[in-house]
């Protein structure tokens, strides 16, 4: 088939669109690297982990730049919430598919879909006015790692549940009939047949939600107390990398600003690792 001139024009226009869309992530990476260069040169990578504390200043020689407590905060809040949200999310999906009567399942799905759309700032606000005072009664001061973990769990749970639900939907019906023919009980079917068949989809969902837990900013900033310290108890306030950027970006200058871009770079690197893991795991088809 011969190609008309308009076709050739169209294809090149589309290629330009795709090239721009694909280049954005490179542009983001490039800008983060450029902006973090001053800090990497003046402060050096080792000082970000060995300095006495986080008291940044615009001049690298006068400040201290220890990012490690914030990295710990991020990792602890992330692991806590993923550990909680994964069983709850999978349980929700299993409930919808194999336990609930269909009217309840329908209602429950709608609820979960509704929750997946609620913005993080609303979750953070609720955490601030309801959850933090409750934790304060239990164990002062209130804003804490625990509050962060609970809010993050509530936030990523709906998406874990939706992705697990999609994975369960894809389990072939003949597997279930086979299990029924063998006389397997409900839980026996789920554990022995459904989970192995849906494992890949569920794990991909959990990996992607781990990324979301790392990147969450506003909600966690509102409930965690934002004290720069490595927490020793679950009731201690923490500050995460993301919250640190949001809090200090407004007035940061010079090497301080640059150090915040370094933490952005760390976040981006964590995400690239997680997305690659998800791609390898799902053989390149993350989104079905």
């Amino acid at each position: 088939m011969s190609r008309s001139r308009s076709d050739i024009f169209l294809i090149w226009a589309l290629r330009c669109c795709a090239a721009i869309a694909g280049a954005i992530v490179l542009l983001i990476g490039a800008f983060l690297v450029i902006e973090s260069m001053p800090a990497l040169q003046h402060v050096g990578i080792t000082r970000f982990f060995t300095d006495a504390s986080w008291h940044p200043s615009a001049d690298a020689s006068q400040g201290t730049f220890n990012l490690a407590p914030m990295l710990w905060g991020t990792l602890l809040a992330m692991s806590g919430s993923v550990l909680l949200a994964t069983p709850l999310g999978i349980g929700s999906a299993v409930f919808c598919h194999y336990y609930a009567p269909s009217s309840i399942a329908k209602f429950y799905r709608r609820l979960i879909e509704l929750l997946a759309g609620i913005p993080s700032v609303v979750y953070g606000f609720w955490g601030l006015v309801v959850l933090v005072p409750l934790i304060r009664q239990l164990q002062p001061p209130g804003p804490s790692l625990l509050a962060g973990i609970i809010i993050l769990t509530i936030m990523i749970l709906p998406t874990v549940a939706l992705m697990a639900d999609a994975a369960l939907t894809n389990v072939p019906a003949q597997y279930l009939r086979g299990a029924a023919a063998l006389g397997l009980s409900r839980w026996g079917t789920i554990r022995g047949v459904v989970f192995p068949a849906a494992k890949s989809g569920i794990i991909t969902g959990v990996i992607l939600q781990t990324g979301r837990a790392i990147g969450e900013t506003m909600a966690i900033l509102m409930v965690c107390g934002n004290v720069v310290q490595t927490p020793s108890r679950i009731f201690d306030p923490i500050r995460t990398l993301t919250a640190n950027i949001a809090l200090e970006m407004a007035y940061a200058g010079g090497d301080h600003r640059s150090a915040l871009f370094v933490s952005g770079l760390i976040l981006l690197a964590l995400i690239v690792v997680l997305v690659s893991a998800a791609e390898v795991h799902s053989k390149g088809r993350i989104y079905g």
Binding site: I28, F31, I34, G211, T217, I245, A246, G264, I271
Partner: peptide
């Protein structure tokens, strides 16, 4: 494939990093 891969990463980039990038760029 490259465009798809880069969009998958873009979808995972935390919003605060978009904020940093938007501010710088």
């Amino acid at each position: 494939r490259l465009v798809r891969r880069s969009l998958d990463v873009l979808a995972g980039v935390p919003s605060i990093v978009f904020g940093l990038f938007g501010n710088a760029f």
